[in-house]
Design a protein around this nucleic acid. Structure first.
Lengths: 199, 199
DNA sequence: ACCTGAACACCGTTCAAGT
DNA sequence: ACCTGAACACCGTTCAAGT
């Protein structure tokens, strides 16, 4: 007991709190998390957390930021914009798949994180190489970003239609796959290419 | 007081409960809703609701279904698939705009409603007219549906990036518009058309 | 500086009881 | 059949106090 207290005495910073919350939610789901349980997990009084994180909303935002930081964003400028976007999309999909219980929920919590902005700018940057007009590039960026949000929200649970189909309709779409996501991204890229040809 | 009780004595059915919850959440947001407040709104003891709706999760699902039923789905078979999809997309966008406080949240509540399935099948039906293979049509349907979810989740709040930009960057994307959504949908449609040309 | 503990104003939900 | 009211096991958060 006294031993346990002695073992862990780093003084509880935001990163450690976010990480513990993330780990817990990955296992138990978003609804199960409470400030009190999280505190117990960190071996600390419930209210200690409030000295490092302003409240629950901020906690969830912090977790979201931590998750998004798992997404690699190095830019290789020599790469075709099509490949840059395809890679980003697939990575984003895999990230959402790694955290299926929390991604849809975090997306709904209205306020963005800095990392989200970086992703947005990455897309914008890649599209700069297409020669689209400013207006069209803005629109295309948002189309891609919107799609990514849909992907994160829907992919983990197979488009949320699982409970509506009977078990016995194997041809129905109950699992998303890498193939499918690649197809979707290519659809958007092909749309942009066609727009470029016709402009 | 006794008068008030006399005025409203229809005996409280699920539809009326869902509608009251929807109206409340449109004004006050999702987080503000509680079973107790909803009961007060319906002029009823808190626990009366449980005789018509199994619990809060079911309540939210019911509300989601009610909202989605606002989306018109009549099929005009003679219309080009491109136009059918464009119309559906724009209507879905406008619906999300009419309920900006609740759409992103309802999307995150994991389990689908029957109406969601109908929308999915509407898309599938429209794409049947393209001549895509079964596999490709399935993929394309899901790409479009995924995009719709992103739209509903992101559009109401301007892609959730608002707080990340300074007030003073007018060129930045803080409002989605009909134009922009139309552009996005056309991008996906163009992608499908190109796929058809190349197959 | 960092953490604690009691307290406040709520929750969703169960269950026995009322009419 | 439909509703009520008390009770249970929780919440997030505030605030004064401890070390």
């Amino acid at each position: 007991m006294a031993r346990k207290q002695a073992v862990r005495r780093e003084p509880l910073d935001p990163q450690r709190i976010y990480q513990a919350a993330l780990d817990f939610m990955d296992v138990h789901g978003v609804d199960e998390l409470s400030m009190r349980k999280l505190a117990a997990l960190l071996d600390v009084d419930a209210m200690a957390i409030y000295h490092h994180v302003p409240g629950k909303q901020a906690l969830l935002q912090g977790v979201y930021q931590v998750v998004l930081e798992e997404l690699p964003l190095e830019e290789h400028a020599e790469v075709r914009w099509q490949d840059a976007l395809r890679t980003l999309g697939m990575r984003f999909y895999r990230l959402a798949q790694r955290h299926p219980r929390i991604f849809p929920y975090l997306l709904s919590s209205q306020y963005g994180t800095p990392r989200e902005l970086e992703i947005y700018q990455f897309i914008q940057q890649a599209l700069r190489r297409t020669g689209l007009s400013d207006q069209d590039r803005l629109y295309a960026t948002r189309a891609l970003y919107t799609f990514a949000i849909g992907l994160a929200s829907a992919a983990p649970t197979g488009l949320r239609l699982r409970p509506l189909y009977g078990e016995d309709s194997p041809s129905q779409p109950c699992q998303s796959s890498e193939d499918e996501v690649a197809f979707s991204i290519d659809l958007l890229i092909a749309g942009i290419e066609r727009w470029l040809e016709e402009r």
